[in-house]
Design a binder for these strands. Structure first.
Lengths: 209, 209
DNA sequence: GTCTATAGAACGATAGAC
DNA sequence: GTCTATCGTTCTATAGAC
């Protein structure tokens, strides 16, 4: 395996450091040092630190979005109204699969996603493309067909819940000392069980006043 | 209402800025400017920027923890084995109530919690006291009695899921444009419904291989 | 494409006057 | 308890040699 090129080394180093220390908490020097590159390399390859962030986030998010869309296509090819549990798995599964690759049991990817998600700043939001909107709209439509009894607002609340559970789990797991004893992969199954039940809950009753 | 003292003004300003921009992304100057205080005031009142963070986080977390413990006590006074839905409400309810006070529909508090949660750095973890451990142990014990069929690991996964859903909901809601049309308070009810169903799910089956 | 060198701004902290 | 002034550090970005 040849040494990756400088550009890739920078992306790898930045992905790791942004996840661990955040964007503001990571200096360009820390990135280039970890990548074994020169301080000026970030400017040359990406233009600026903020543009490097965008490239990092895109690289993390894109394969997940692609897989989520592909999973939905597979379900819809079999049936026009896939059951809730299948939709949950198609949506949440790729999140878990992505978090498994590479880093410490997925904690790094997961942490990066939580940071992106929780950060309202311009830099952290500038990566979004039309694929994310397509994804959201298509899943909302599919879940609406599966759960026509829910209001759009409550349905959307639940879809956000899926993302929350998937992303946060690994982060907290990794924060703990000592590390939990279980193997990493039950979490995917637990999450599907947990979320399928949550998505299948009857509508909340309007508050009796 | 008299103007709060400088110390409180600094806490308020720091809480807001840390939530919006993160710890590294917030300068002491930005805090003192927003608080209408002098640059040196942070050093005088808190010793350092990191100690100010600790004070901010303690002030946010403590009343939530207190209310979560009080809610559990109330349930246990009525019955030694409270049902899952009641435990969920006692645990998640105070999170929602805290997120409702003061800031933009709770997004600020919520965002701060997500940031604390997602950040592994020493500064962000130094606030934890024994109350958080007590809280965790007591809820794990109560949920274990309600769901003796779940393994401890899967149970713990689910409890983390509660926190994830409660914290993340408001953050994402606030990131959206345009803002969702629903009033803020259905979210608490939706969350209880969502999470009670999730916590009530049967155990995941071991993977058939 | 990689490097050195440095400009120019912002940072956290604190000494010392009031 | 509040202020000014400033020290020493670190930051991002970039000009220009190779």
């Amino acid at each position: 395996m040849a040494t990756p090129d400088t550009r890739t080394q920078l992306l790898d180093a930045a992905e790791r450091l942004f996840a661990e220390r955040g964007f503001s908490g990571t200096s360009v020097r820390a990135i280039t040092d970890l990548a074994g590159a020169n301080l000026a390399a970030v400017g040359y390859h990406f233009g600026s630190k903020a543009e490097l962030l965008t490239a990092v986030v895109r690289r993390v998010i894109e394969p997940i979005t692609t897989e989520q869309l592909a999973g939905l296509d597979r379900l819809l090819a079999r049936s026009p109204e896939p059951p809730v549990a299948d939709l949950v798995e198609a949506f949440a599964g790729p999140l878990f699969d992505a978090m498994r690759t590479g880093d410490e049991g997925g904690a790094r990817t997961s942490r990066l996603i939580v940071r992106i998600f929780g950060d309202p700043s311009e830099e952290m939001r500038s990566w979004t493309g039309s694929a994310e909107n397509t994804l959201r709209d298509r899943y909302v439509a599919a879940f609406t067909r599966a759960r026509p009894d829910l209001t759009q607002d409550e349905l959307w609340f639940r879809i956000r819940g899926i993302l929350a559970v998937a992303a946060v789990d690994r982060v907290d797991r990794h924060n703990q000392t000592p590390a939990p004893t279980d193997a990493p992969e039950p979490a995917r199954r637990w999450a599907i069980t947990f979320l399928a039940a949550a998505m299948s809950a009857p509508p909340s009753e309007p508050r009796a006043n």
